[in-house]
Simulated assay, not measured.
Amino acid sequence: MQNLMLLKEIVEQRLRSRARRAGDEGQTVFEYLGIIVIIVLIIGAIVGTGLADTIANAISTAVENITSQGG
Score class of each variant (00 low, 15 high):
L6V: 14
L6E: 15
L6N: 15
L7Q: 05
K8T: 11
K8S: 10
E9Q: 09
I10P: 02
I10V: 15
I10C: 09
V11R: 11
V11Y: 04
V11L: 14
V11P: 05
V11K: 12
V11I: 14
E12F: 03
E12W: 01
E12C: 07
Q13A: 15
Q13T: 14
Q13R: 15
L15S: 07
L15P: 01
L15W: 02
R16H: 11
R16V: 04
R16W: 03
R16M: 09
R16K: 12
S17C: 07
S17H: 04
S17E: 14
R18N: 11
R18I: 10
A19Q: 15
R20N: 10
R20A: 11
R21W: 05
R21M: 02
R21H: 06
A22Q: 03
G23D: 08
G23F: 01
D24V: 04
D24F: 07
D24T: 08
E25L: 10
E25S: 04
E25I: 11
E25W: 01
G26Y: 02
G26T: 02
G26R: 02
Q27V: 12
Q27I: 08
Q27P: 00
T28F: 03
T28H: 06
T28R: 15
T28E: 12
F30G: 14
E31T: 13
E31I: 12
E31A: 02
Y32D: 09
Y32W: 10
Y32C: 05
Y32H: 13
L33N: 09
G34K: 02
G34Q: 04
G34D: 12
G34M: 03
I35Q: 11
I35T: 12
I36M: 08
I36F: 02
V37S: 08
V37F: 12
V37M: 14
I38F: 04
I38V: 08
I38D: 12
I39V: 09
I39W: 04
V40G: 03
V40T: 10
V40W: 01
L41S: 09
L41Q: 07
L41F: 07
I42C: 00
I42G: 03
I42S: 03
I42H: 03
I43K: 05
I43P: 01
I43Q: 05
G44I: 02
G44M: 01
G44T: 05
A45D: 08
A45K: 05
I46R: 00
G48A: 05
G48M: 03
G48I: 05
T49G: 15
T49F: 11
G50V: 00
G50E: 00
G50A: 02
G50I: 00
L51D: 02
L51Y: 05
L51Q: 06
D53N: 10
T54V: 13
T54H: 12
T54Y: 03
T54S: 11
T54G: 10
I55H: 01
A56N: 13
A56R: 02
N57D: 07
A58W: 03
A58E: 12
I59M: 09
I59L: 11
S60Y: 07
A62L: 07
A62M: 08
A62F: 06
A62Q: 13
A62H: 00
V63I: 11
V63Y: 02
V63L: 07
V63D: 04
E64S: 06
E64C: 01
E64D: 12
I66P: 01
I66D: 04
I66Q: 09
T67D: 01
T67L: 14
T67N: 07
